[in-house]
Every structure is written in C-alpha cells, then in structure tokens.
Design a protein around this nucleic acid. Structure first.
Lengths: 95, 95
DNA sequence: GTAACTAGTAACGTTATAAGTTACGATCTT
DNA sequence: AAGATCGTAACTTATAACGTTACTAGTTAC
C-alpha cells in the first residue's frame, strides 16, 4: 500500500553511489562494463534497471542486486497502477 | 544469496490459486481480462508476470500485486545470475 | 459417437524496452 | 585553445508481453 511516488532507481544510484564517491558517468559505465549511454539513460530515469544491470551494480558497489531490482519493482508497480490501476477484474477468491 | 532455484510464478499461480478453486484457464483468463494464450504462457513458464498482470492477479485473488512481482523478480534474478553471474565488474565501493 | 468444453501452442502482428555504436552540441576544466 | 564530460538523437538488434486466429488433442456429457 505504498502511496507515495517511489523515486526512480537511477536517482538513488546517482545520489547514493556516484556522487558520494565522485564518480563520473563515463568512469562508472566503464567499470560496470556497459556503454555510457546505457548508464546515462538509467541515471536520468529514461531506462529501468534490468536484472543484469542489478547484478553489475551489486558487484560494483558491494550491495545486493536484489535491493536494486526491488526499487525498480516498486517504481514499475507504481507506474502501472497509475496507468491501469482501475482495470476491471472479476474477483475469484473465496471472499 | 538465495541459492535455490526459485519456482516460476506461473507454477505458484496454478497450484495456489487455480487448482484450489477449481478454476479453468479459460475462465480465469476471462476474469483477469487477458487472452487465454497469455495466461497459458504464464502458467507454463513461458512468460513472466508483468506489473500489469500482477495488478490483475492481486485484484482477482485478493492478494498483493507486490508479492507476485516479487516472485517474478526472484526468478528473473536467479536466471540472470545463471547467465551473467560471472561478469567482470570493477569494484567501486569504498571497501 | 458426436458435440461441447478445455488446453497447449504455432503463426501472424503490434508495441515496448534494454543495449550497443556513432555522432553532435554544450558545458566545464586545465 | 584543448580535452574531458555529459546528454541525447539516430539507427540497429534482441527480447518480451499481448492480441487474434486456427489447429490439434484430450476430456466430458448427452
């Protein structure tokens, strides 16, 4: 029931990882083994974090890949709810 | 560090939702508002659960959309780790 | 035993996303 | 001025979700 707009994981990545360590986008992209463009898109909220990317981030920043995917999931779910949150579905549970 | 192969969410859906309620695939697909093919693909592990689908499942079975997406995430992450789990990434953390 | 229902799936199309390379313009730094 | 950095547009490739239609095969009912 999270009711607040979850931040895009890219923002978090920038604020919690790149900035504190004074890492450039170019430098970080190379370290991650992805193109600068790919990282840039994530940082600017124009792409999501794929499972592969989550693994890379986990290794680079010594965090859990899961935490990155989790943030992405929260973000995606919130977005989907804004779009199709009012789809009509027949209740199938016992209740 | 979950080391066991997580089940495909489609299996869980079948065993925990359809079967206990004696629901047919056709019937459930209609209730969810998706095509029979789409549901069938999920149930047989040939498609994943999208955020939209998670919302539909949550409404139909009175569960949280999050739990469905979470299962999908675990599954995707495990799959990705089997494939690219050994990518080389430069360590960027302080440690 | 035929008709109805059910299920998997192949073949087609549409839309969207992740990722890559290349290239350009803008800023900032030395 | 020269070099580095960054965002981003254009283009390509691969994958994925979803839809419709249609075929095959099994099961159930009359």
């Amino acid at each position: 029931m999270k009711m607040h707009n979850p931040p895009h994981p890219g923002e978090v990545l920038k604020e919690l990882c790149l900035e504190p360590l004074n890492l450039t986008v170019t430098e970080t992209a190379e370290a991650l083994g992805v193109s600068r463009k790919t990282l840039s898109a994530i940082l600017n909220g124009r792409a999501g974090i794929s499972p592969e990317m989550a693994i890379r981030l986990g290794k680079a920043f010594d965090t859990s890949a899961e935490s990155w995917l989790n943030q992405q999931m929260q973000y995606d779910l919130w977005q989907a709810q804004q779009t199709v949150g009012n789809v009509k579905v027949k209740r199938l549970s016992v209740a």
